[in-house]
Design a protein around this nucleic acid. Structure first.
Lengths: 205, 205
DNA sequence: TTGTCATAAAAACATTTGTACTCTAATACA
DNA sequence: TGTATTAGAGTACAAATGTTTTTATGACAA
């Protein structure tokens, strides 16, 4: 948790905070103090300032002093989901505990130039990447920095784009499937263009 | 695409647009015209005004007239990633095409009460859900509406919480693993509390 | 009661900011 | 070459906005 002990909000603070989050989600920019004033049914900006200061002290928001509409919400980035614990997928026994952490998808999504590919086929099935999955990829700047075992999307001229494990042995490059039914592809360095390396897998059911 | 034919941007417009998107991603609020002016290396706000007007005409941005820092980016919602095509995971041959679609994770995330669980174990491995994966779940309001074959997280009192395929046959409930090493669990209605059904799988590498 | 504290109102102020206007330089075109 | 067009500089101004100060109110404890 980024918020610690004494960070509980009063009702008024909480109401304001919730309203701000809604506003910023809808409009992609910060409201002005006078807008918040109206929304909270107040007739003076001072109470809003006070609540904002408290929200700032408790680590919920921040802003650039003196600048109009420059608020930022500290904690909640879009794409955050509470993790309610773990679940047995086997014989293990577990029960839901409280919320321990948040799953933050935006951490991956906000990387520069992330793109997605639809997976077509079953050659990566042993890596638990199935037909129809979406793979989120990050462009590869320096193909020399690729580590063995990384999953990459590689374009082999004349062969097309394929998702495989990357291995480098000797002067050769090997692209290996995660499925014994498929043979490794052996290539020389200039024969392949790496388009991206795997960041995450997304499957919607 | 929401943008149509004559919506191509000039270099200057494109540079500004890219800068705005970055700024708004980083700061969660709109920049001011004078900030953009500086960022573009200009010494007068007029050119920025002109470019903004063009961006607005072409449907890329909007703002509230006269209000400070009220810009909105029209197209890009957070949690949206461009899909660059599909990739072969097998023998298929495919090449990257243009951007066809966007992958919108927020569609799932914005459902009410979505929560995540860490998968512990390998009993769902044949459904391509591996140890360490995060499963995004939706609370189940009405357990009668559950369809056979749905993946659910179920709490069996005395046994814990487990991720399994749900089946209903006769008056009985069966919870089946996606791994032949595990036996199905047979239960009566009432002996089990369903906590959620699977919406999506997320794996960060 | 009295004093303290938190909250709200009201008013005033300085800065930030969007917008409009004029002028100049560069560019394209006939 | 001359003219039209466009982009940018410079300036000015009114509105929006954050901030400060002063005062009033109510709750609550000493």
């Amino acid at each position: 948790m980024t918020t610690s002990e004494g960070d509980k909000l009063t009702d008024a603070q909480n109401e304001l905070y919730a309203w701000i989050k809604n506003y910023m989600r809808d409009f992609q920019h910060s409201p002005s103090i006078r807008q918040m004033m109206q929304a909270m049914g107040l007739k003076s900006p001072a109470p809003i300032q006070s609540r904002l200061k408290h929200l700032q002290d408790k680590g919920y928001i921040s802003w650039q002093e003196g600048k109009a509409r420059t608020m930022q919400i500290i904690d909640e980035i879009s794409g955050v989901v509470p993790i309610m614990g773990s679940v047995a997928a086997g014989g293990l026994i577990e029960t839901y505990s409280d919320v321990n952490e948040n799953l933050d998808l935006s951490e991956v999504l906000q990387k520069k130039d992330v793109f997605a590919l639809t997976v077509n086929g079953d050659s990566m099935i042993d890596a638990c990447i199935a037909h129809g999955d979406m793979v989120l990829m990050e462009p590869i700047k320096d193909s020399n920095s690729l580590r063995n075992g990384t999953i990459v999307s590689a374009m082999v001229p004349g062969l097309g784009t394929t998702l495989k494990y990357f291995f480098k042995r000797g002067g050769k490059i090997f692209l290996e499937a995660a499925n014994p039914a498929y043979e490794p592809i052996e290539l020389n360095f200039g024969d392949v263009i790496f388009q991206g390396k795997l960041l995450a897998v997304w499957r919607k059911v």
